[in-house]
């Protein structure tokens, strides 16, 4: 047989063939549902959000204060040792100016861009913090290394979710936290 003999062929279609119903179609809308168990670490993390607090876990072996918290240290590969509150302030590690939405639709001309950011939280180990959003300032005013603070929902509106923080805003000049820049030492230990 020649190679062409293996080609199974088919029918070339035009856009109009779909519009006029010439092409037969089957539709199926998947109805998949999941309920992910938060577990010990993320369960406590989100419960603390409801109280307007951010909590981390400490590994005594490598001395890291891990945020988001985890019950095991992925590097030492042992259970972590204790809970520790950290601040709701930090510095911008990186950010982006998103002009499209989650579903890839373009944001309208009057809608401000979304500002996803990774914030290194004061009190957590270097390079650790929260993936969240920036707000309350012009996108062009945000810079890497800028000090920011969480803006929380009203207590009655919090549900124990990452969205209990609305966004992080720049810390106004003059009211800046004394611990700016890299966190030094640990926060307050808690049970």
């Amino acid at each position: 047989m020649k190679l062409e003999d293996f080609e199974l062929g088919g029918t070339q279609l035009k856009a109009s063939d779909f519009k006029t119903g010439k092409v037969l179609t089957t539709e199926w809308k998947p109805d998949l549902k999941y309920a992910w168990d938060n577990g010990v670490a993320i369960g406590r993390y989100l419960a603390e959000f409801k109280e307007g607090r951010i909590i981390a876990r400490v590994c005594h072996k490598c001395d890291r204060i891990m945020l988001p918290p985890r019950m095991f240290c992925e590097l030492c590969f042992r259970p972590t040792d204790e809970w520790m509150y950290v601040k709701d302030t930090g510095v911008i590690n990186t950010f982006s100016i998103a002009k499209v939405n989650w579903d890839a639709s373009r944001r309208g001309p009057k809608e401000p861009p979304l500002l996803p950011a990774v914030i290194e939280i004061d009190g957590a180990s270097e390079g650790m913090g929260i993936m969240h959003m920036l707000g309350e300032a012009d996108p062009k005013d945000f810079k890497i290394g800028m000090k920011v603070k969480a803006v929380w929902k009203k207590p009655e509106d919090r549900t124990g979710a990452i969205t209990d923080i609305l966004y992080f805003k720049p810390v106004a000049a003059g009211t800046e936290d004394k611990n700016k820049g890299r966190p030094e030492g640990r926060g307050k230990e808690v049970r």
Binding site: W36, G39, M71, F77, R78
Partner: peptide, 25 residues
């Protein structure tokens, strides 16, 4: 297993396996 996340569930099995083998990851 509503008490643990899938990560916490897997860590337990992994830590026990490595300890059983006498090896670190």
């Amino acid at each position: 297993t509503p008490d643990v996340s899938f990560r916490e569930l897997i860590f337990e099995a992994a830590r026990k396996a490595y300890t059983d083998a006498g090896i670190e990851p």
